[in-house]
Design a protein around this nucleic acid. Structure first.
Length: 361
DNA sequence: TCTGGGGTCCTAGGACCC
DNA sequence: TCTGGGGTCCTAGGACCC
């Protein structure tokens, strides 16, 4: 089963943080600033979706579609907390140790054994859905299928508070997938969909009809993968993915208006502020970084990233500032206005062992 | 319509080493 | 003088996801 929370951030706001927002069009995301804001909508309640608002849409457009919508910036920690609550519920229903968290608001669970206690898998799905709703107040949808890839697609077919069942029979699976657009597959995005479109391939059914060899000139090494997934084949075992190991920490800032390249002091100041936030987080998580990356987006939206790797790991905040500024000064185009500045640290390592040792000594 | 912010994973080339 | 094969690390870019 694949479980996906419905309109997640918006639902947490409506059903947990601000019950007075129930029934209203709610957008979680950046401040639209009267239509001038530059961010996007991170989640839209179903009432907001009725106005045509979608997540990922620029807030300026969302504002035009529905100026009366309630725009909230959101409270990420409360989403993390709610996530922990429903993941714990999933753990109770899944086969022993078979919960795979896919993101803050979705997970896969293996239910092959537990399902034997029910007349139909849909009964179990309904019980999970009801338990989550009663206990966390949040709506979710469930997809049931023979593997993760198909289950995820199934979940999206029937939202919100839906349950979609795809039978085990491979012929049924193929029939279920055949009419769907190629980008229904997790892993096929805009670029791949357009590439396939150039060969007049639009549906998964068309891919099912081809051989891997025929697909090769279009997709190269990705041909086998695409052919299998389009045919409903996904042999990945559903295993618990354990605690999340963070590989990088980054922060970006898009300016309300593009910044003149002459305003170097202001740009430096922004980098410093971003570095400070990152250094705080690094320290809080007892991590050390070795690679620093600076991201620059110019007014025409072209984006570059330049990085530098240190010989040894450190958590030093001043070092981070100096390196980030150094990369910026060296690599930026001093002629072009800046739309976004970002800093990322990676090659992270845990320094808790050292902390423990220091405590011990 | 005008494009965020947080990530992960993959590829490919070059430097360098044995 | 012309030149191997394998491996690792670093950098940059890009696709993709929520």
């Amino acid at each position: 089963m694949h479980i996906d929370m419905d309109a997640y951030f918006a639902s947490v706001e409506q059903y947990r943080n601000h019950p007075e927002l129930q029934g209203l069009p709610v957008c979680v995301g950046h401040d639209p600033k009267g239509g001038k804001g530059r961010g996007v909508v991170r989640a839209a309640s179903y009432e907001a979706r009725n106005h045509g608002i979608r997540s990922g849409m620029p807030v300026s457009r969302a504002y035009r579609l529905c100026p009366n919508a309630v725009f909230v910036s959101g409270d990420f920690q409360s989403y993390v907390n709610a996530s922990g609550e429903f993941m714990a519920i999933l753990r109770e229903f899944a086969d022993e140790g078979r919960v795979r968290r896919a993101s803050i608001d979705e997970a896969y669970i293996e239910t092959t054994f537990i399902c034997q206690e029910y007349r139909h898998p849909k009964e179990l799905a309904l019980e999970i859905q009801t338990t989550i709703k009663d206990s966390t107040k949040l709506p979710c949808s469930v997809g049931i299928a023979p593997n993760m890839s198909v289950a995820k697609i199934a979940t999206g077919m029937n939202k919100p508070m839906g349950i979609t069942f795809v039978p085990q029979d491979p012929l049924e699976v193929v029939r279920f997938l055949a009419p769907l657009q190629v980008d229904a597959l997790n892993g096929v995005g805009k670029v791949t969909a357009e590439r396939l479109q150039r060969y007049d391939i639009k549906t998964l059914g068309q891919i099912q009809q081809m051989s891997v060899t025929e697909l090769w000139p279009i997709m190269g090494r990705g041909s086998r993968w695409l052919h299998e997934r389009a045919s409903g084949i996904d042999e990945r075992p559903l295993v618990d993915n354990g605690p999340r190991i963070r590989k990088s920490i980054s922060k970006d800032r898009t300016f309300l208006e593009d910044v003149d390249p002459e305003a170097v002091d202001y740009l430096h100041e922004t980098i410093f502020k971003i570095c400070e936030r990152i250094a705080e987080k690094v320290k809080k998580k007892a991590l050390e970084y070795r690679t620093v990356t600076v991201k620059l987006r110019y007014a025409d939206y072209t984006t570059i990233q330049r990085s530098r790797t240190l010989p040894v790991s450190t958590a030093d905040a001043d070092m981070l500032r100096r390196i980030a500024r150094g990369i910026f000064d060296q690599k930026r185009d001093p002629e072009r206005a800046v739309r976004l500045l970002g800093v990322k640290v990676s090659s992270l390592s845990d320094n808790s062992a050292q902390v423990c040792l220091a405590d011990f000594l």
